[in-house]
Design a protein around this nucleic acid. Structure first.
Lengths: 382, 382
DNA sequence: ACTATTATTAAATAAAGTTTATAAATGAGC
DNA sequence: GCTCATTTATAAACTTTATTTAATAATAGT
């Protein structure tokens, strides 16, 4: 009956603890009794798990009274701890890196404490991160969560391939960041983090494809409330679908990838008749001024085909678009959405819903971090 | 300590029982001790589960001695019961229907006891099935497993859409077959059954896309040893990818689907300059005589593109081709395989493996049946 | 016949769940 | 303000299932 420091709970308990945490990722706060119904255990068990997780500071009590005006004893509400910083969330971006402390219960839009230009080598990067974010770290942190672009092998915790950030390939980030903090570092593929973020910010939608426009064109699928995890180090590779008649050379080494048309630099290349340094603002300005020119329509249609074929294969009807497409005039997204609807056959048996949405990278990282660190390991008999 | 008739085991026990059954779907026979290592429980627990399942006649002992020549007491081997017929496996095909009794431990190639032409209505079908297979049924059966083409909603146990077998749409097969037998009927989408069959006959391959050529072009993906189950009533829709320049009308209502080129009837249409009744044998003969004509190459390339894009999206590198492609000269499959390898980008990070394989429909149905009936329900806390 | 090895069974123990009963907190009705 | 119904929380007893440990059984090789 004494406080065990770190006794691994049995499989069944782990399963139930996971249910609790996942439920609380979706819902702001919950009472023991409500939780019991939600996860399908007896109130006693639910109560015990809540007590355990509260003792571990994974949950915390909510002072505010429950909002529902009903008879009976009101339940004590609990939520994921939103007081103690537990993770350092890091966005390793192609052009810049951001980092910020975050709690388990964070429910806002992305915020970052520090930012710097991403340097050209791993050591410089670690050093800059140390210099800027080092003072944020404290002994209570549970992990450093790194969102990275490219093709990531989540099992091996390695970046396999990253055309825009070659130095990250094969890096051992855990070792690289060990000097910063004793807490373990975790790599999470950027688009997958965004998909997880979309999951927690729209828990009612259990099946969707997230498509992010940025330096590439990435996708990640959520099916039945589960992120689709392929064993090969790809997710839903959308960016490298070949487009007929496109002879641009892609960072991946191939020719004609759709990514070379709709990525930020791809769009810039399309508008820049003269020379001129890459500037995303110029792209935005040009499209604002010139509207949907033919080249842009072609690029969007190609992207829509890639997305539509992914929808067909995965049997999905919901698409969330994030990233740089939101910077462009709404006519661009509107055109793309129409083209996606045309490109899929799902529409025959229902409606394809496409929407744009802000990125929820931090919340996605937290969800991944909770999975990896708090719940940990696979669930076998114990 | 007395024999409970049908007490539902707890979640943990269900989990472990499932591990045992799934292990024995992969492996012909196993001893208690070996099983304990395989499923990760103590030998005691593994032994108890084996005893339980044997008492329920899910497992049976194997008389033959273990083949391994090692010192020490050899273990008693167990396998899935291959003595008592437990399922009536039914293949509801577009042109004909087949049915046969099968045990849980069946490990051979597909065999069927009865066969008849699929009639034009549900009632006639049930009647014919009763007439031909009725005498096979006995009280000990656990279920009737029906493999159906088209788009199947496995949760609702309904065929949503079946262009070649319209009468099956919306049918309540459970009710339709109630007069035949008290055991429950289960619908399993045909391609998914084949994918499950491929899983059990090649347990070492945990990730692949199964593509079946028949009256349509269907796909089903297995990722990490799990059949990909989409919530929308599609699986990997390959057949209805639109092909530029193809103006054939598809059974699905759209124009230009790749299925209209590579389905049996599609191929027939391509060779039949004159009129003439559809006959698959004529297609085979024509291609044997004329080899890879231009129209055929075009059709195969279109199919390869659809398959390749599915591989990209799903991050798969293994493809198994089944069905009518095996009837054609090997040059056809060879050409298709080469085209698939060209169409995917997975090849960049490894090799794409494509192979043809005979269908394992019955074993796939058994695997699905075991999941649905013996293991049953979802695994929540109990 | 003896030994080493592996397999199985039995008993004791621990973990985690459920059911049942009771206590606590609140709104509603009087 | 008091009582009652309703809901939530917790305590106690019991059940299921797994584990550990020890004892026993079976076999191959010496």
């Amino acid at each position: 009956m004494h406080m065990t420091t770190a006794a691994t709970p049995s499989t069944l308990r782990r399963l139930n603890r996971r249910s609790v945490i996942q439920y609380l990722l979706d819902v702001p706060a919950v009472s023991r009794a409500e939780l019991a119904k939600a996860i399908g255990t007896s109130p006693v068990t639910a109560g015990k798990i809540v007590d355990e997780l509260t003792a571990e500071h994974v949950l915390e009590t909510v002072d505010a009274a429950p909002e529902t005006k009903s008879v009976g004893r009101p339940g004590q509400l609990f939520r994921l701890d939103a007081t103690r910083p537990r993770f350092l969330a890091v966005q390793l971006g192609v052009t810049h890196t951001r980092a910020g402390l975050t709690t388990l219960g964070f429910r806002q839009q992305d915020t970052w404490d520090v930012q710097f230009d991403t340097p050209q080598s791993a050591d410089e990067w670690a050093e800059k991160l140390q210099k800027t974010a080092g003072k944020l770290l404290n002994a209570k942190l549970w992990g450093i969560l790194i969102s990275t672009p490219g093709i990531v092998d989540q099992n091996a915790q390695r970046v396999i391939f990253s055309p825009n950030l070659h130095w990250s390939e094969k890096q051992d980030f855990k070792a690289l960041l060990r000097p910063l903090h004793s807490a373990p570092a975790f790599l999470i593929q950027e688009i997958q983090a965004l998909a997880l973020g979309e999951m927690v910010s729209r828990p009612e939608v259990k099946d969707f494809l997230l498509v992010d426009f940025s330096h590439g064109l990435g996708g990640a699928a959520v099916i039945g409330g589960q992120l689709l995890k392929t064993v090969m180090p790809f997710n839903c590779e959308l960016g490298h679908t070949r487009v007929l008649g496109n002879d641009r050379i892609c960072g991946c080494g191939a020719v004609g990838c759709v990514e070379t048309l709709v990525s930020r630099r791809g769009l810039f290349q399309s508008i820049s008749t003269g020379r001129g340094q890459y500037q995303w603002e110029k792209v935005v300005k040009h499209i604002q001024d010139n509207g949907l020119e033919h080249w842009l329509k072609t690029a969007l249609t190609a992207a829509a085909d890639a997305i539509g074929s992914a929808l067909n294969v995965l049997g999905l009807q919901n698409v969330t678009l994030t990233g740089s497409i939101s910077d462009l005039p709404t006519a661009v997204a509107t055109y793309l959405i129409k083209e996606i609807e045309n490109a899929t056959l799902s529409g025959r048996f229902g409606t394809v819903h496409v929407r744009t949405s802000p990125r929820n990278r931090v919340r996605g990282l937290i969800k991944a971090g909770l999975e990896a660190i708090v719940l940990g390991g696979d669930l076998r008999s114990r």
